[in-house]
């Protein structure tokens, strides 16, 4: 029999421990980045086959509305980040107020997004109209679904009001924010 050696790899601090916040949320953030990254890359790859058609199709989107939505989301993300600080300071009323404002901006985002969808629908533009719209509906639709989920999640963590819960909920919200700042230039500007 050999005596157990005192130091094993397992006893060393893991690099995972240095990651701020909930590990599972980071797994989700990376997964979402992979999905949206692949979707945007596929969008740009298909665009090579028909640049003129893509440029024409893009004019039907609300570019200004989407630009405003960027400001709306980063501001909402800032409020969520402040809410995390409030949670750590134990200020429940403040954190709930901040999360409510952040969620309200999420609703503003959805209203602007909805008006774009409504205009497209009125013009008879759907998923199958052009490859551009297949992608723009898929990508922005998936993103909008995450905004809805995020609003619900912020409500939930606001009710729980523990620092850990608020941090996790806010991390999801930042991920939504992050995806948008990558999606917006590719779909609306390029």
């Amino acid at each position: 029999m050999t005596a157990p050696t005192p130091t094993r790899p397992q006893d060393q601090p893991s690099v995972l421990d240095s990651l701020p916040g909930e590990l599972m949320m980071w797994v989700l953030i990376l997964s979402e980045l992979a999905v949206f990254g692949a979707g945007l890359a596929a969008f740009l790859a298909v665009r090579i086959t028909d640049p003129a058609g893509f440029a024409e199709a893009q004019t039907h989107l609300h570019r200004t509305g989407a630009g405003i939505n960027t400001v709306v989301l980063v501001t909402s993300g800032w409020l969520a980040a402040l809410a995390v600080q409030a949670a750590e300071a134990g200020r429940k009323v403040r954190l709930r107020g901040l999360l409510a404002l952040a969620s309200a901006l999420g609703v503003v985002f959805l209203v602007l997004k909805g008006s774009e969808y409504a205009d497209l629908a009125r013009a008879g533009i759907g998923f199958e109209t052009h490859a551009f719209f297949t992608f723009s509906y898929l990508l922005t639709g998936f993103h909008a679904a995450h905004v809805i989920a995020g609003i619900l999640l912020l409500g939930l963590v606001g009710a729980l009001a523990t620092p850990r819960a608020v941090e996790t909920g806010a991390a999801f919200w930042h991920m939504v924010d992050l995806v948008w700042v990558l999606l917006f230039p590719v779909v609306y500007l390029l």
């Binding site: 969520a80 980040a81 806010a170 924010d177 700042v181 230039p185």
Partner: peptide, 17 residues
């Protein structure tokens, strides 16, 4: 446009997250 997007992403990851 892409550099600006990268910068924004980095801020969100570094400061918000």
């Amino acid at each position: 446009v892409l550099v600006l997007a990268g910068w924004k992403s980095r801020l969100i990851l570094g400061r918000y997250l």
